[in-house]
Structures are given as C-alpha cells and as structure tokens.
Design a protein around this nucleic acid. Sequence first.
DNA 1: GTAATTGAATGACTTTCAGTCAGTTGCTAC
DNA 2: GTAGCAACTGACTGAAAGTCATTCAATTAC
Lengths: 225, 225
Amino acid sequence: MGIQERKEREKEHRREEILNAAQSVFFEKGLQTATMDEIAVAAELSKGTLYLYYKSKEDLYLGVMIRGMEILHNMFIEATSTDEPTLSKIKNLGDTYYRYFQEHRNFFRMFYFFQNPQFHTQVSPEMMSSCQLGNQKIWKIVIELIQQGINEGDIRPDINPAECAVILWANSNGIMIRMDTQQDYFKNILGVDLEDVMQKSGTMLLQSMLTDSAKRKTPTISYAS
Amino acid sequence: MGIQERKEREKEHRREEILNAAQSVFFEKGLQTATMDEIAVAAELSKGTLYLYYKSKEDLYLGVMIRGMEILHNMFIEATSTDEPTLSKIKNLGDTYYRYFQEHRNFFRMFYFFQNPQFHTQVSPEMMSSCQLGNQKIWKIVIELIQQGINEGDIRPDINPAECAVILWANSNGIMIRMDTQQDYFKNILGVDLEDVMQKSGTMLLQSMLTDSAKRKTPTISYAS
DNA sequence: GTAATTGAATGACTTTCAGTCAGTTGCTAC
DNA sequence: GTAGCAACTGACTGAAAGTCATTCAATTAC
C-alpha cells in the first residue's frame, strides 16, 4: 500500500522533527531546565503529540543522545577507514574521541546521563536497548582494531583487547570530564594542562601495550619510557 | 552566653539530623525520586523547617555527598598514616579508593552528580564551595604523596604530581563507573573481569612513573613490562 | 459525491512536588 | 506576667510531567 508507506514516512519524519526541537531545547537548557511545553512550542506541536511519539521526557532526551552516539560512531568508522598501519588507526581513534569532545560538547555531556543509573527511572526499555546497541557498536570498533593490532604483532598477545579498550576509554574519558568542568582550576591552581596530560597518558598506556618489535618502530615519547 | 552556645549546638545537631533523614531517603530512592515531604517525615519535622536549614533539595543532596567526601578523606588520611615506604602508600590509596567504591557505593554514585554540571542549577554558592573544598582536600593528599615519592627518588622527577594524580584517578574512576553499571555485561559478553583490569592498569600506570632504581626494587607485574 | 471510519493532533485537566509564608508555639529576658 | 524572638508548622502556590475526551482531516466504502 502506497498510502501506508507514505504515512510511515511521515511518522518517521515527525519523529525526527520532534527530535530536532528537543535537541535545540536540551542543548540550550539541559535536561532539568528544559520543559516539554518548550519543546512542543519549538516543534510547533501540542505537548500531547510529543507523547504519541516518545514515552517520556527522558526517552526524548535519550533519543537525542543516540544521535550523538551515531555521530561518534561515524567518526570512528571514518577514522579507521584509511590504509594507515593499525597503530596509527588506534591513535586516530583517540584523537577522534578528543575531537568529538571539542566539537560535540553537548552530546559528550549527555553521555553522563546514560552512565548514571540514578536517572534512568522513566526510560522505556526500547530506548534503553537502543542506547545499549549504539554503545556496543562503538566498543566493537575499538576492540576489533586492537585485536587487529595483536594479530599483526604490534600489540602484545597477552593483552585482552576488550580490557585494553576499557583502559584507554577510562583514561581519556576521565580526563575529558575534568577538562569540561575544571580545566581552569587545574591550569591556574595546580599548573596542569589537561590536554597535555591526556596526550601523555594516552601515549604512555599505548606504549606499554606494544610488543618489543613495535616499540622499536615508534619513537619514544616523554612520559613513556 | 551559655544559652547562646547551647542553641548553636542544638542547631548544628538539627542540621545533622536532617542530613541523617535525607541520607536514608536519598540512598533508598535517589535524587529524582526522593521528595522533600518524605525527608520531612523521616526527620520528624515539617517541610518548611528543612528549608530553614538547607536552601534547596539539591543543597541537601550535596550536604549528604560532603559526608561521603569526608569519609573518603578520612580513609585516605588513614591509608597514608603508616610508616610504610611511599610507594606502598600510593598503592594503598588506590586500594582504599576501591574499598570505598565497594563499601560506600551510594556515596560513590553521588559523586556523579557533582561531576555533572548539568545538575547544579539549584545549588547555593556556599554548598558549592564546601564541595570544592572537600574535593581539594582529597586531591591534596594524593598530590603531596606523589611529590614525596619524587623527593625520595622513587618517582621520576620529570613527572608533574598533579598530572600523575589526575591520570591515576581518571583510570580507576572510569573503570569503577563501568563496574558499577556494566560489570556483568563485560564479564559475560566480552569476557573481561573489570576488577582485574583496574588492578592491572593501575599497576601499569604506576610502573611507568617509577625511576629506574625504584623499578629494580619492585617486582614486575603482568601487563607492566 | 457523500457518509462512515480511522487515527493524528489537541489542550484543558490532573497530579505531583519544590519551595513559600502567614501564623503558631514556646523559650528567654526583664 | 508579658514582650520579644526564634524555631517551627503546614496549607498554599506555581510549575511542569503526563493524560484523555474531543476535534478534525484524511481515507475508505458505498
């Protein structure tokens, strides 16, 4: 049925438009301060209609966050679709995540929400599993790339790629969180340039995961003896 | 004036009792779901009275969180008040933070809140600076201990102690966040024991910060070549 | 062409809850 | 005893999430 299909398309289109409105309101005001009435006005719809498309305000919030995940996913795909050596690609992923942090700060901040189980009270199971799926796709890229590094003999075979991914993520994410909220405090009071720190610690961690032969190929960088 | 002082004490006592009530309600329900009416019932006071002692629900929440910071601070003080060598003390700090995560999970989760700038809308400046002060005291312990390690020749002098502290924190905190929410996912789907990962990555990071003479003293541990 | 049916959209309404404030209570001072 | 003051109360207000009976337009049936 052509009409059926058209209606389906229109419905999908409406879902997207609601998400556009929600995105601009959430970015401007944050989850707490944004109201469904404001989003309804921005979407040029009544509030009731929003609830025909999304089960709750938090669902809508996660809907926007999933867009952010997709952007990161695409950036990761792109960063690893070159014909560089695997180790360079791994470094690219780190740089790409940092670029994401800089260029899509609002999305990066939304990831807090998903990490904090305290704020999942009103989330529908469907939206929840969408998020988990998006999350998984991103981990998969990193883990498979590390596995490739192991297969090619650049990364030590005694390393578990998933463990390695977690370590690299924990490090960069933790430092970026501090950058987001306390960059000036660290710079002025403690004399620490967090951007430097991230660079150094990332290199340091990566270095200690390399095989001896791979180490010989790469120049040693400060902090990573 | 004796009466003046007694009243001061009583006021302080009441503040503490309100905090007790708030703590039990927040631990049970979380920030979102807990209501001021519930806290008032738990404190055996009227809701209005709560607002004589704390400016907002979020202030009350941070008041409880500060208790959690004090507990961690005391544990850190204790962990570093031995006559062990400095390197052992640094390891103790790591172990202590992990023990805190296990034994005071509710407080650990509250720290999310403070890290996320999105939820600071209703916080009074006084409570905010209390939090920052508590935070600072904890950093101070770690940073000074690392400085001591440098002075004693065990940690490389080209390392900035604050940078080093950030790296160690970012790593352990990031992994603990995953442990809190996704431990089973990592164990079952990816075959990763996050407790292991934290142990290994902590050791790895620490190793790469040691001077050559200190490395000779310590046995090498897997992952940390 | 017109009536019946469907379902998308509406917005007034309900409920819940943070925060307020006019009024009460009871302690202290004189 | 009583004036004054500080602690306390809880009914009230306003805001905002979420609901639902009703409207309206598009589609289908005849």
